[in-house]
């Protein structure tokens, strides 16, 4: 080993030293390996113990945070949708209630109008029957007086033609007999 110390790390121009292609010079292997092991090992320790956990932590925290925020946004969206649904339901209910009120109002009005109309119609019908009755009465009375007049006229005509005095009853009888023939 001791020989290699001087051979490997010597300045190449040193007399007596055969010139070797430096990247392949075995004399420099030992110190390079030792220092590589030291530095690489140290870097591995620093990175794996200190630096990388920090980076990983931050990245994880960020992704957690994003996940959480997304979850919250989702929840808020759901709540909004629920509120919207509730609002729409309330709206539908109110509309239904309004319709019901309008309908009952309409029904009431119709019923009242019908009642009024029935009353008026009944009144009219009553008046009509009364009028008809009165007409019939007048008519029969008139007809009755037609008979009387006819009897009187017939009596008068007989008296005029024959000069005989006839009683009212006789004329009436004769008229009834004539009417029956």
């Amino acid at each position: 080993m001791a020989q290699k110390v001087t051979a490997g790390t010597a300045v190449p121009d040193q007399p007596g030293h055969a010139k070797v292609f430096p990247p392949l010079d075995p004399g420099t292997f030992a110190p390079q390996l030792i220092w590589l092991a030291l530095t690489f090992g140290l870097l591995y320790l620093i990175l794996s113990r200190v630096a990388l956990p920090r980076v990983g932590e931050v990245i994880e925290e960020r992704s957690d945070r994003i996940k959480r925020d997304l979850g919250q946004a989702e929840k808020l969206k759901e709540e909004t949708e629920q509120a919207l649904a509730a609002y729409e339901q309330a709206l539908a209910e109110a509309r239904g209630k309004a319709n019901a009120i309008a309908k009952s109002m309409r029904d009431n009005l119709t019923a009242e109008v019908d009642k009024e109309r029935a009353k008026v119609e009944a009144l009219i019908a009553q008046k009509l029957t009364e009028a008809e009755a009165r007409i019939a009465q007048t008519k029969s009375k008139a007809l009755a007086s037609v008979n009387d007049i006819a009897t009187d006229i017939a009596g008068a005509i007989v008296t005029k033609l024959t000069g005989a005095e006839v009683s009212k009853e006789e004329v009436q009888k004769a008229l009834i007999r004539r009417a029956a023939e």
């Binding site: 420099t28 110190p31 390079q32 030792i34 220092w35």
Partner: peptide, 10 residues
Amino acid sequence: GWDATFTNSS
């Protein structure tokens, strides 16, 4: 006995 010389590479 190992050559652990601190070099420009180190």
